[in-house]
């Protein structure tokens, strides 16, 4: 394990026994480096939550090894979890307790002193804009406010690692933006390492240094968001047609291009290197268009491509 690796996972496997046993995670290995934000992506059922639950010890692995800060997790659970925070949109707080009471309980569980609890609670609740609601029961808070309290709980303990399971789901765009800025600040100021799952590909591309793509319990890609996006060669060309919709469709059919038509717009999927050829072909066919936009390959396209390939394999 190199010096800056704070989490090392080796051959982590989870098999649910039954009449037909189900492998949720299949010999997954990866490292998380100090100060790194690692995105965990994949379609529903790919094994993201299973991984996070095992990294928290709330789910027992069938086999494999988890090492935090050079120490075996299974034999040093409590000591390690004092430095590992967790926030998830899908986990709740006792809803009859107030925000302040909940954070007080969790602050104590993480071993914070009375002074630390008081100051950090105020700092984080003010940052997330829920300070005024601190004496209201959790049952009266919105889903977005609950998520922000969950993040306050996670970062109150000043963790070395944060496991964030879809932390921006259910948030309004402006609040989600604030959360991303907060995550970036925690990384920059405190060198916190993070494992980050999200369904928002643009967000993952913005926040994460590296992305690991899970498919059917296996890692199918592990690279930077840019490199993964570049591995998709298909670009999307959108045209707002003036004259020649029929001829454009004929061109797409002749060249086996995938296309979708919506009123005066047509979107064509074309290899990045053949965009010039497409535009030249349309010009020769005397197609007139009033607007053109070309979408470069993105992480989302990569996601869709991998999901499509998996579906075809099935």
């Amino acid at each position: 394990m190199s010096n800056d690796v704070v989490l090392s996972v080796r051959n982590l496997t989870k098999i649910y026994p039954g009449k037909v046993s189900f492998t949720a995670l299949d010999h997954v290995s990866f490292d998380l480096h100090e100060g790194e934000i690692l995105g965990l992506l994949g379609p529903n059922g790919a094994g993201k939550t299973t991984t996070i639950q095992m990294l928290l010890s709330t789910l027992k692995p069938t086999s494999g090894e988890i090492v935090y800060f050079g120490k075996n997790f299974f034999t040093n659970r409590s000591e390690i979890l004092a430095q590992v925070a967790f926030a998830s949109t899908y986990i709740k707080f006792p809803d009859r307790l107030t925000i302040r009471e909940n954070l007080d309980v969790y602050g104590r569980l993480y071993g914070l002193t009375a002074n630390e609890r008081k100051h950090r609670m105020e700092k984080f609740l003010k940052f997330f804009g829920v300070w005024d609601q601190r004496d209201k029961p959790m049952s009266t808070t919105s889903a977005g406010q609950t998520t922000r309290v969950m993040l306050a709980k996670a970062f109150m303990a000043h963790p070395r690692i944060a496991l964030l399971d879809e932390p921006t789901a259910s948030l309004d765009p402006d609040i989600a933006h604030e959360v991303r800025a907060f995550v970036a600040e925690q990384q920059k100021e405190y060198n916190v390492s993070m494992l980050f799952t999200s369904h928002n590909m643009a967000e993952v591309a913005e926040v994460c240094d590296r992305v690991m793509f899970l498919q059917n319990g296996k890692i199918v890609a592990n690279d930077t968001p840019d490199n993964l996006a570049r591995s998709v060669s298909v670009s999307k060309v959108q045209l707002m047609m003036g004259d020649g919709m029929k001829r454009t469709i004929e061109y797409a059919q002749q060249h086996n291009l995938v296309y979708t038509v919506q009123e005066r717009f047509i979107e064509l999927e074309v290899d990045e290197h053949k965009i010039a050829e497409l535009l030249s072909g349309l010009a020769k066919a005397k197609v007139e268009y009033t607007q053109i936009s070309i979408d470069k390959p993105t992480l989302e396209m990569y996601f869709l491509q991998v999901a499509k390939e998996a579906k075809e394999r099935k």
Binding site: Q53, L56, S57, T58, R77, S78, E79, L81, A82, F86, S88, I91, K92, F93, P94, Y106, L109, Y110, G111
Partner: peptide, 10 residues
């Protein structure tokens, strides 16, 4: 729904 949250602590 607080069991996981609680046992995700030390």
């Amino acid at each position: 729904a607080n069991l996981v949250n609680m046992f995700a602590t030390p």
